[in-house]
Amino acid sequence: MTITREYLPEIEFEHVSMRYQTDAAEVLALEDVSVHIQKGEFVSLLGPSGCGKTTLLRIMADLIQPTSGEVKIAGETAREARLAQKYGIVFQSPVLYDWRKVKQNISLPLEMMSMNKTEKEKRIHNLLELVGLEKFKDKYPWQLSGGMQQRVAIARALAMEPEILLMDEPFSALDEFSRERLNEELLSIWSKFGNTVVFVTHSISEAIFLSDRVFVLSPHPGRLSAIVEIDLPRPRTKEIRNSPEFYQLISDIRSSFEGV
């Protein structure tokens, strides 16, 4: 039975739509979106601003409820999955507490658990090691670079050992060099942690570099316009960005936006 479960979709969206009521009019943010994401898969939600990427992620996280359609997370409702603490979330901004040191920011989710001090300290140490911040554990967020702050946010999201990591454009505010370096570090973390990752981005190259599959969304309203398989070998290194296969995938995805 356990073996069979591994082949079931972990995240299922069936005909999901989302409408917002504004002062001016009703806005259709998502229309009839159906996606299935497998356990342990790294997928990206890709599209221009206003295509509903973040809305889709917020529905997965049970932060908002869709107007219509069905959402299942490992066979449960999104609410049941949230209450079971199956999610870790990394936002566009690190959202760290300036008055708490790095290790204290990471430990925040663990403070709500009945975990003994020794076990808690061991987990925090392992997370600091995972994101390469052991030497900065006693620093405050304002003493770190933007990229380092996001690594703290990733470690905090992983503190509860979630089955699913949801990431909403976490590197968009960084310069290109820092962004590419953190892309590589994220894949290294994912390879060790083995959870399902749903990553929101508007960067085609970032989506290709990170993902097993890319879900391309069209804007106004957000619809699923293409699902692109990324058949590049893993582990991925920066050199793959210069390969003919990489450029071909960029071309394929760009062409999926034509006529949208």
Rank of each mutant, 00 (worst) to 15 (best):
residue 84 A to D: 14
residue 236 R to G: 10
residue 132 G to Q: 07
residue 178 S to C: 12
residue 62 D to K: 03
residue 176 E to T: 01
residue 75 G to P: 08
residue 153 A to F: 03
residue 106 I to W: 09
residue 127 L to I: 04
residue 212 D to F: 01
residue 90 V to A: 03
residue 218 S to Q: 07
residue 256 S to G: 01
residue 229 E to Q: 07
residue 151 R to C: 07
residue 49 S to D: 14
residue 248 Q to A: 06
residue 104 Q to N: 06
residue 204 I to D: 09
residue 198 V to I: 13
residue 170 P to E: 12
residue 63 L to H: 11
residue 44 S to M: 03
residue 225 S to R: 05
residue 33 V to S: 09
residue 246 F to H: 00
residue 35 V to G: 08
residue 123 R to I: 07
residue 119 E to T: 12
residue 189 I to W: 05
residue 215 F to I: 03
residue 181 R to W: 12
residue 62 D to P: 07
residue 87 Y to G: 03
residue 205 S to Q: 06
residue 245 E to R: 02
residue 6 E to D: 15
residue 191 S to T: 06
residue 53 K to F: 11
residue 235 P to H: 05
residue 231 D to Y: 01
residue 143 Q to D: 12
residue 10 E to T: 02
residue 23 D to C: 04
residue 128 L to T: 06
residue 121 E to T: 07
residue 14 E to L: 09
residue 98 D to W: 01
residue 27 V to F: 13
residue 212 D to M: 01
residue 70 E to G: 04
residue 204 I to S: 05
residue 36 H to D: 15
residue 100 R to T: 03
residue 122 K to G: 09
residue 234 R to Q: 14
residue 4 T to P: 01
residue 66 P to C: 11
residue 234 R to T: 10
residue 24 A to M: 11
residue 9 P to A: 08
residue 194 G to S: 13
residue 22 T to G: 07
residue 181 R to K: 15
residue 38 Q to I: 02
residue 219 P to Q: 06
residue 142 W to G: 15
residue 116 N to C: 01
residue 66 P to Y: 11
residue 108 L to A: 05
residue 158 L to H: 09
residue 203 S to P: 06
residue 166 L to Y: 07
residue 80 E to V: 02
residue 243 S to E: 12
residue 253 I to H: 00
residue 218 S to T: 08
residue 121 E to Q: 15
residue 95 V to Q: 15
residue 14 E to A: 08
residue 222 G to I: 05
residue 260 V to D: 13
residue 36 H to C: 11
residue 253 I to A: 04
residue 243 S to D: 14
residue 165 L to E: 13
residue 250 I to A: 02
residue 251 S to D: 14
residue 70 E to L: 13
residue 76 E to C: 06
residue 74 A to T: 02
residue 205 S to R: 00
residue 48 P to V: 10
residue 241 R to N: 14
residue 44 S to A: 12
residue 3 I to M: 14
residue 151 R to S: 09
residue 152 V to Q: 06
residue 139 K to V: 01
residue 12 E to L: 11
residue 211 S to R: 04
residue 260 V to A: 07
residue 108 L to T: 04
residue 225 S to W: 00
residue 252 D to R: 00
residue 61 A to F: 06
residue 96 L to C: 09
residue 251 S to R: 04
residue 193 F to N: 07
residue 257 F to E: 02
residue 102 V to A: 08
residue 26 E to D: 11
residue 190 W to G: 08
residue 153 A to W: 03
residue 119 E to V: 07
residue 15 H to E: 15
residue 178 S to H: 13
residue 53 K to A: 10
residue 191 S to K: 14
residue 143 Q to F: 04
residue 222 G to S: 09
residue 42 F to C: 02
residue 14 E to W: 03
residue 61 A to K: 02
residue 246 F to I: 00
residue 240 I to V: 12
residue 106 I to P: 09
residue 24 A to N: 13
residue 236 R to M: 12
residue 182 L to F: 04
residue 95 V to I: 07
residue 71 V to A: 14
residue 30 L to D: 10
residue 185 E to C: 05
residue 54 T to I: 06
residue 93 S to L: 06
residue 89 I to Y: 04
residue 196 T to E: 13
residue 157 A to T: 02
residue 218 S to F: 04
residue 37 I to M: 12
residue 8 L to T: 05
residue 152 V to Y: 03
residue 117 K to A: 14
residue 183 N to G: 13
residue 29 A to I: 05
residue 164 I to W: 10
residue 222 G to M: 11
residue 119 E to N: 13
residue 196 T to A: 09
residue 69 G to F: 12
residue 9 P to G: 06
residue 103 K to G: 05
